[in-house]
Structure formats: structure tokens, C-alpha cells
Design a binder for these strands. Structure first.
Lengths: 142, 142
DNA sequence: GTAAAAGTTAGAGTTAACTCTAGGTCAAGC
DNA sequence: GCTTGACCTAGAGTTAACTCTAACTTTTAC
């Protein structure tokens, strides 16, 4: 099977412009061209999936490009690529921890507004002690 | 207690420039000035904490400003602020789900490179079936 | 009281990641 | 054979979020 740029764009939930921009940045070095037109194939999907993953983990385009370049160099860069993946794993753990932390703050605020709405005024809750009042960095006083 | 802009910047892990930029954007309408100089006080910390939270949940400055403006209007905007918080709650859930999903992909890739490194070549794993080969959007073929 | 450090503003510059425009090619349907 | 729609490139424009500069004031330490 083969796929046009607009089909791929839809799959990744971005515009065709964006796919061309990624290509310009060197993220699709192995995609086939027929009369100058990009033709994506099934063999490209593993990389499209990986790209989608890295992009959604907020890896900058330049860093993704580095990964592409490493992969193109073959087996001699296995270690470097492995380390890049380990770095991402750590990054995910950190993001998960942070998200869970901020979720608590939002949950507190939700309860806060529910009480306020019940009373019709914020006054009744304004001085609620927030049990999640510290920052991760733990530098803001309570 | 009172705090200078550079102390606050350190607490939020950003530069003083950034704090001034936030102020310019209207995110600190209630911070005191003494001879033109910003003086942060204990009473400002609940908002600093909330700002830190929203910022780290990737809420755009403009949206944070909307929240600030709502809060300034008082009790008549309680409902709107509550809904904004609910939206954030959903946003967090979505981010958590996505993160967990992409974590699986990264974990797969980690095992992939571990095997490849063991063998000294990627060839042995290149055709591994990826059990997490679908996208969230479920539009990429396996 | 004076120098250095830290604060101020307005406004210009930077960066990443798109996003679009102009001017063109190409394949499909009528 | 000709229009329509999807593709192409180069390069300009946009947006968000800083980031910095210049010129000035205020505070702090000696």
C-alpha cells in the first residue's frame, strides 16, 4: 500500500504543510518520491509511529533529527540511540510525576469552587488551607 | 515577609525577565509596588502556586490571563472559573493517558535496543512486531 | 556619599514550529 | 484537450514565549 502526504497528515493529525516542514527538516530521509511527489509506504509506518511518539513527548524537531541521523549511520550508533531512548524514559517519568502533582492542585481547586458555588461566594473558602500548597521545587512558602 | 522579583523568579524556576513579561501580560495585577519596584508578599503565594501549576500544564499565557480577569471580577464569575478548572482536569486526564501510552512505545524501543546491543547489530530486532504499534488515533496501519 | 548591584521601562530581537503564498507540475475525469 | 484538484518548491509571514538592550532609578554595602 502507498499513501499520499494528505493521508499521512490526517493520520498524524497535522497539516500537509507540517509534513512538508518535517521533511524539509530532514525527518523523512527514506520516503520514496515518484515524479517529485512523496509516496509513503507501509515500510515507513514504524518510523511514522516513532515520530508521532517523540513529537507528542515534546521532543524538539532538532533532537528528533539527531535521532534520525544516528539511525541512518547504522549499528555503530546503537549505543547513542539507546541512551537517547533512556533519556526519554526518564523524561516521561518526570512528566508523569509532575502531572500527578499538578492534578492534586487542580482537584483542590475544583473542590474549592464547588464549595464556593454552593455558598454563592468565594469568601467561605478563601482561607482554606491547600494541602498541596508546596511546589515540586519546594521553594515557595506555604 | 516580602520578596524581590529575583527571589520569586528563582522560586518559579524562571528568569526575572520572564516574571516581568508575565507582569506585562497582566498576570500579576495585585502585586504591590514600592517606588516602582515590585514587592511580592505572602498573600501573593497562592496565586504564584496556581500560576506555576497552570503554566506547567501548558496553559497559554492568554488563557491564564482570562482566568486572572475572571478572578478579578469576583463572585459573579465563580461558575466560569469552575468550568475552566474542570477543563484543566480533563486536560490532565488526557495528558496522563497519552503519556502512559507513549511510555509503552518507549519501553518497547528500550527492549529493542537492548537486544540489538547484545547482538551488536540491529538486524536481529528490525522485524520485531511492536505490540504497541497503533496510534491513539488508531489510524496508522500496524 | 559613592560605587555596585539590582531594580525599572519601552521596545527590539530571537527561536521554534508552524503556516501560508506564489508560481509551477502532473494525473484524472469529462 | 482542458479543467480541476492535489501535489511540488522557495521563501515570506505568523505566533507564542521568552530574552535581551539601553537608558534610567533605587537600594545596599562600605
Amino acid at each position: 500500500m502507498s499513501y499520499s502526504i494528505s493521508e499521512i497528515a490526517k493520520m498524524l493529525n497535522v497539516s500537509s504543510y507540517t509534513i512538508r516542514y518535517y521533511d524539509k527538516e530532514g525527518l523523512f530521509p527514506l520516503v520514496k518520491r515518484v515524479n517529485g511527489i512523496r509516496v509513503f509506504e507501509d515500510k515507513d509506518f514504524p518510523w511514522l509511529r516513532m515520530l508521532n511518539c517523540l513529537k507528542n513527548l515534546n521532543m524538539p524537531i532538532k533532537k528528533i533529527k539527531e535521532y534520525v541521523d544516528l539511525a541512518l549511520k547504522g549499528d555503530e550508533t546503537l549505543k547513542a540511540r539507546y541512551e537517547l531512548i533512556l533519556e526519554q524514559e526518564k523524561n516521561i517519568e518526570k512528566q508523569l510525576k509532575e502531572l500527578k502533582y499538578y492534578k492534586k492542585q487542580i482537584d483542590f481547586k475544583k473542590a474549592y469552587y464547588e464549595k464556593a458555588l454552593e455558598a454563592g461566594t468565594e469568601e467561605v473558602v478563601k482561607n482554606w488551607p491547600n494541602p498541596h500548597a508546596t511546589l515540586e521545587v519546594d521553594e515557595l512558602p506555604k
